[in-house]
Amino acid sequence: MIWGSIIAWYLFLAGLAAGAFATAALVSFKDRGRKAFVKVQLVGRIVALLALAIGLFLLIFDAEAGFKNPLRFFYLLTNFASVMTWGVVILGVFGCVSLVTLLLSLLKKHVPYWLDGLGIAAAACTAAYTGVLIGVIKTYPLWNTALLPVLFLVSALSAGMAATFILSALIAPRELEGLGILKKLHFALLPTELLLLVALLYVASSTAPAAQASVERLVSGDLALTFWLGLVVAGLIVPLFSGGIGIGAGGNPGGRGSDTDGADGARASGRGGAGGGGRGRTSSGIRTMEAAGDVGVLVGGFLLRYLIIVAAVPLTFVF
């Protein structure tokens, strides 16, 4: 095993950062300058930069020789044939945009839409890059599919939203109530991810024997318990259920017009303060369940990377 859990954490955190940024930017687009979802945006931007920083630290820490000789990291921009070099560029752009947008948010300034647009593009590249990075490696047929970047992209957005939502639920639960459409998007990502995962395993297991062996390790081998309980049940099934119930419950009172109305509702409740009453409010039980689902998404997001990293069996060619 050449790469292990540190790289899995990095892939996960970079994806999470991208997803959280995208969440914040989407909320900002939805907000249209009305400042109804300021806290959620701020949470998303903080999560994005923090996750990115931790992920990059792990990446540097795992690069033992560079960690010992930091000046060598300047060589990183020399070989543009390497996906990793492109990754450095992408991460650089994404990191800068994240930082600037976070500062603007903290200074309570409006983040220009073009900047968030650029940020979303950089975030998408970052999330996809984490998949492309290992997806171009022919040694591990499990990784070497075009589906992997797409899967990682979807999972990244899912994880980023989950992280943003969990924290927002603590800090600004009312703002969150008005983001029904994002919740639906968040929910919709889960079956997409499941579908992509099934497709990935199916495609892989019908190619090289090494990929078959990898899939076997996941589905029925030494990693099966983590795969089924951790990734499939905790990471996908539980969030699907809790998300479904949450949307069902949330959709009743506030769901009459869950896009613009929802925003209005949120604004209204925000303005109305405590007196705003029950309209659009989700019961605490459902909120706890949604949070549990989001925790599941995060666990699943990490396990997805971890399992794909460790399950990969190298090509066999000698015999």
Binding site: I2, F73, T139, P314
Partner: peptide, 28 residues
């Protein structure tokens, strides 16, 4: 070795699994 950061990307890319990391230096 003066340029190697020890990211191990080359190690994963080598289909022959022919590269190792020297943990004294972290270099591949």
């Amino acid at each position: 070795q003066e340029r190697c950061i020890g990211c191990k990307y080359c190690m994963t890319a080598c289909p022959y699994n022919a590269r190792i990391q020297d943990h004294r230096t972290g270099e591949v």
